[in-house]
Amino acid sequence: MAMPVVSPLLAPARARRQVWSLGGGKGGIGKSLLTASLGWQLARMGKRVVLVDADLGGANLHTCLGLAAPERTLGDFIQRRVERIEDVLVETPVPGLRLVSGASDFLGAANIKHPQKVRVLNKVRSLDVDVVLLDLGAGTSFNIIDFFLVSEVSLLTVVPEPTSIENGYRFIKSALYRRLRASAEREAVRQIIDSALDPKNPLGIRTPFDLIARVEKEDPAAAEELKKEIAGFKPQFIVNQVRSAGDVTVGHQLVSACLRHLGIRASYAGYVHYDDTVWQAVRRRKLFMADAPTSIAAEEIRQLARGLLKGESLSLPW
């Protein structure tokens, strides 16, 4: 019954499990609600879904779902109080939807070490489900960016406010440079990339275009590799809390700007209107998808889920 998910955005080998992650840099813009509602919808569509609250130190997924704070959390797995991630999976009222709750009680959770991060990701990626949805939380730390980069579907959430847009670009540039640095084999190239992270770097590198040009002088083959890495980086924007047609257009403009100024081939997954029913449901400790299924937000989440499963995105109308 669970059909393999095929998307033109993915490498052909991956016909089964997909990891989707939601980042965005800014806090409080609705990533947890988006994660919860997308997960809910996918499960209702017959997918086997695991939600992972990777917002270490700020876990909210259980609250968005209207669940009490689970006893077993990601923190237990990280601290090795349990060995298998399956042991911290929590059932939800929705068949097919399970949760790995964040370690909200673990003070050091926001600073997990690299080997712990690797262990979490390995286990998450090996879960026998159709979709794993990672709520990455706010910020641009390595933990968040690395989770974002190893996902099949990397969703960058913004709201139509300058603070969020600013954080979004910061996030996307950080992710790109991290990806480039990880792919660079030579120390000399890595140093150029490191230098590029500082906007006042002595090389005058302001954009990824400048970076490629600079690396090309040092090592043309390495520059080709970097170009391929950039081409392979395909974040998808979700514009949340839309209130006007202009807000919807912001998504298209972000895609265009990313291409023109960063050389990044982003796409526009979709948008969700600001909807009072959403926060009202949260106040009542319910998920709006179940509580207000005819709301605009719920309809748009359904469209978003369908589009993401098909690997389709919004394109400019001309």
Partner: peptide, 16 residues
């Protein structure tokens, strides 16, 4: 579309 994107105070290119 472009005018809107690059006008003063435009949201989509803010900080970019």
């Amino acid at each position: 579309f472009c005018l809107d994107m690059y006008k003063e105070g435009a949201l989509a290119t803010y900080s970019l």
